[in-house]
Each structure stands twice: as structure tokens, then as C-alpha cells.
Amino acid sequence: MKQKLVFLFLSISLFTYGQKTIYEHNNFKEFSKDHKILAIVPFLATLELDEEQELSKEQLDELEDQEGEAVQNALENYFLKRKEKKKFSVEFQDIKNTNAILAQNGISIDNIDIYTTQELCKILNVDGLISGNLTLSALISKSVPKVDFLSIIMGKSDFGRIAIKISDGKTGKLLWKYEKVINRKSGKNTNAIIEGMMKNAARKFPYDREKEKKRRKD
């Protein structure tokens, strides 16, 4: 009986951890038809660390910025690899240029959320924006924490959730969104997590050339 209960808990837990959600706007094709270049901005991170990890507000803010910038960097790395194989129908602005332009306009990861998508796209001179947020109970930019077996069967091995969004620069409308729970199987660090996420979402990624071809046929 105990073995059956353990198996049940484990099954439920693994099912929950694998959950992901992909949304695409019904009129994506119309809104994105003139898209040529997108900017990836730093992600907004919220850290919910254990109470024993005593940090000042300044230290916590710094770590949150670090995690948000790590996701921005990991996404660029992923897109650059795929770009070499001519997988995308759009270009991606160099994040060094993106961050420099934002800084020149007094925009940082700490206040970027007060600007609209249209405002940011106009400042960056791009057609659309890739942004997002993540909530973490552990730092992932260096390495994913180890989780023991008991935590897995009790449903506690996930330590975060990430959402990647694409928005239209002209209208500000949300065109695409991918949400996923992060756990120890997601990858060993931010780069691995993003790589795995985007590979799983590749067939659903709206700017994939193969998907674009199918849209044109339809």
C-alpha cells in the first residue's frame, strides 16, 4: 500500500512539473506581418529565497537583476545558434545595443516595467519585444540546486516558473506567451533551462521559418 502511495505521489508530482502553457494570438499573422527585428529586454525576476538566507534589500535586488539579465543573455544565445541555421524569419537586436540604448534613455531593469511596449519599441527602434518574468525560490544563473527524493514525491522539487512573451511594437498586444515550471530536470543553469524550453517550444515558436511557410499555405 505504501509503495502504491509513493508511486501515486511521484506520478502526480512529475506531471505537475512538466506542465507548460503556450498561447498565440489568433491574429498573429496580421500583427506580425511587418516584423523584421525584435529586441530582447532583461526579464523581471522575483526571488522568494529561504528565510535563513539573510539578505539586505540591496543584495536581493542585485540578485534579481542578475537572474533577469541571465535569462536575457540565454535567450540571445539560443536565437544566435538557431539563426546560424537560418531558422527564423526575423532578426534579433544585439542585447548589448538594447541595454545601451535603454541606459541612454534612463531605463533600467528596475524601472522598465513602467514603460509600455510601444514606448520601448519606439526607443529601441524595433518591431516587437521579447520580455518576460520569472519567480524563483533558488538562484539558477550559476547552477540548479540539488533536490532530494523526498522533495520530489512530496511535490516540492519545482523551484520556479518562467514566462516568455512576445508583444507587438505598434499595438502593444501580447502575441505569444510560453510559461513553464522550472525544476531540477529543466537544466543545470539558465542557459540549459532556456535551451531546453525553446527546443520544446520550437514547433510552436511563431517566427520559425517552417511554421511561416505553413501559414502562407493556409
Rank of each mutant, 00 (worst) to 15 (best):
M1D: 06
L5F: 12
I12H: 06
L14G: 06
F15Q: 06
G18H: 12
Q19I: 09
I22Y: 11
Y23V: 05
N27C: 09
E30P: 00
F31I: 03
S32A: 15
D34E: 15
L38S: 03
P42K: 04
L47C: 07
E58W: 01
E62H: 02
D65P: 00
E67N: 05
G68P: 11
Q72Y: 02
N73H: 11
N73Y: 08
A74R: 01
F79V: 07
L80K: 13
K85H: 09
K87W: 04
K87F: 10
S89K: 11
E91T: 00
I95R: 07
G106D: 05
G106Q: 08
N111D: 09
I123V: 08
I123F: 07
L124H: 03
G132A: 10
N133I: 01
L134C: 04
T135L: 04
T135F: 03
S137V: 00
S137T: 14
S141D: 02
K142Q: 07
V144S: 15
V144M: 10
P145H: 03
F149Y: 13
F149S: 05
I152V: 14
I153K: 02
M154S: 07
S157L: 00
I162T: 04
A163P: 01
I164Y: 06
S167D: 09
K170Y: 14
T171W: 05
G172M: 00
K173N: 15
K177A: 13
Y178W: 12
N183Q: 04
R184M: 06
I194K: 06
K199Y: 08
A201H: 04
Y207Q: 09
K214Q: 12
D218Q: 14
